[in-house]
Design a protein around this nucleic acid. Sequence first.
RNA 1: GCUCCUGUGGACAAACUGGUUAAGUCGUUGCCCUUUCACGGCAGAGAUUGCGGGUUCGAACCCCGUCAGGAGUACCA
Length: 584
Amino acid sequence: MTKMRVRFAPSPTGALHIGGVRTALYDYLLAKKHGGTFVLRIEDTDQKRYVEGAEDYIVNALKWCGLEPDEGPGIGGDFGPYRQSERKDIYQKYMQQLLDNEHAYYAFDTAEELDAMREKVKAEGKHSFQYDASTRMMMRNSLSLSEEDVKVLLENETPYTIRFKMPENQEVTVNDLIREEVTFQTNELDDKVLMKSGGLPTYHLANIVDDHLMEITHVIRGEEWLPSTGLHVMMYRCFGWEDSMPKFAHLPLILKPAPNTYVTKRTKDQFTESFAAEFMKSTDLEISLEDVKKIVAQVFSNPKDIQSQLKVGKNDDGKKKAVKAFLKSAMYGKLSKRDGDRLGFPVFPLSWEGKSEADSFVGFKEIGFDAKAVNNFLVFLGWNPGTEQEMFSMKEMINAFSLERVGKSGAKFDYEKARWFNQQYLMNKDDEKIAEELGVLLSEKGLGANEAFLEKVAAMMKERVHFIPEILESGYYLFEPIKSYDDKTIQKRWKPESREKMNLLAATIKGIMSFDAITIESAVKQFMEEQELGFGEVLPILRLAVSGTTMGPSVFDIMALLGHEETVNRMTASYKYFDGVIVE
RNA sequence: GCUCCUGUGGACAAACUGGUUAAGUCGUUGCCCUUUCACGGCAGAGAUUGCGGGUUCGAACCCCGUCAGGAGUACCA
């Protein structure tokens, strides 16, 4: 049996989307499980969409996720180059083979002519123009033109594309590893452009040639490719490579979260605002923001049933239709990079600095996600082990993974679940490691603390947050003076008449010799007994005095961490503040 | 429009080739723990398996029809 070779073939048109990361993960898992090779190939055949830095981003993102390729640009391997822009000559050669075998032909139609043709067909009320066996003889190409004309056109360096000559009346069936047999009629398929006028191949050509030459055995890609797989199989056939054709596996799409998960009674006003504003930016219709808001608000009037509100009604005018169409595309379908901003979660592994603010995104990493948690979350977007195991290390994933257990239906992105996974990983993470990261974050803020201190912070905070940076937010008072107090609770708990006893408490604490949590706790309890005070009269006040908030770890732990002097200082200072709150 | 894919509780999803009251996880609700928050533990709510027929002793699973959603339909990938 030949060695398994799996490739990840992204296009450097921007930051690598989380869906791409999942594909890479599955590629990696499959390859590693079978002792195969994981290949990275950069598909940069579209010079117009090429984005500076995107390739580096892809490499860095894979690295962060622990999905390092065995072969690829900058890594090497026996099947290079691994950048399609560096393989031009190869495509030319194979293009010629198809031309020679009459499986492809020159087409001289300009973009304008093609557009005009599409317009014309549409105007006639037909669905849409398709360049295929039924129409190709009406177009300007080496099939319809005389040999002499073609020769002249080519000699005059008339721009041309090369199209695949889709055979008639045939059936192609794709044996997809996930979807089983999918059959296409060649008569439904069109003559796709294989070589663009600039001499660069389109995806279809480059992909087939490279997969063949690189001896790829398994092609894992998103479901959006399924409709063109008929063409791809046909191409393998025409090249005479059908016997060694890779196996295909089309992954279910990652979908936007269901609107009813975020548009609720509480949030609908907020989303009405933001969607209306986004619509205004995207439209050139003459409509006021107020009117748009009204339409959006109507659609959101019953958050549980947005979908039916989105249906175009008989009385809807053009503007209403436009707003509804916008909402539909914004709220349903494939997860897109815009969704991150819209809904407040990351859709990229790493942050991306685009040319503008609108083109910049925060990544999972920067939010504080552990790459392991991201992998664990992603592997479940379309796959499940069939057991009840939820947490998987990379090793376990490799072991458990199989394409047979990949589902067919689209998986909605669930940020809550991603957060949950991160929390699980965080709770199991060593305090030492958390302390290390905390130290870095702290110094970025211009603060500092010693390692032992940070480890204690990590231990008591890690199960209370979802992300490491959150520790610095909800537990900021461990590093800085108290910024704000929970006044409501102060008003409820701070009794001027017990001021004297509270002073006594401060004095008691001041008198503790060994300032550790256990000693403090017993001292406080003893104090309460002596003074005949209940927990409710003492603990909330103590907590407030020391941290400003009623939430957080055990007060005694906080006090021990802050230290003797700081604790006492905070108590006296806070008491003064409490008095002020009561007076108001 | 056409082609292809998909359709199990709010979300993910199990049920291997049809077989008892349709797993489990996230979320949600309540209780316990803690006089805080979280973690943890326990319990509950939530599904006529998109809908309608059919085959069968028996259907989420097979057949037919229907509806809905998604993807593709570029000299983009």
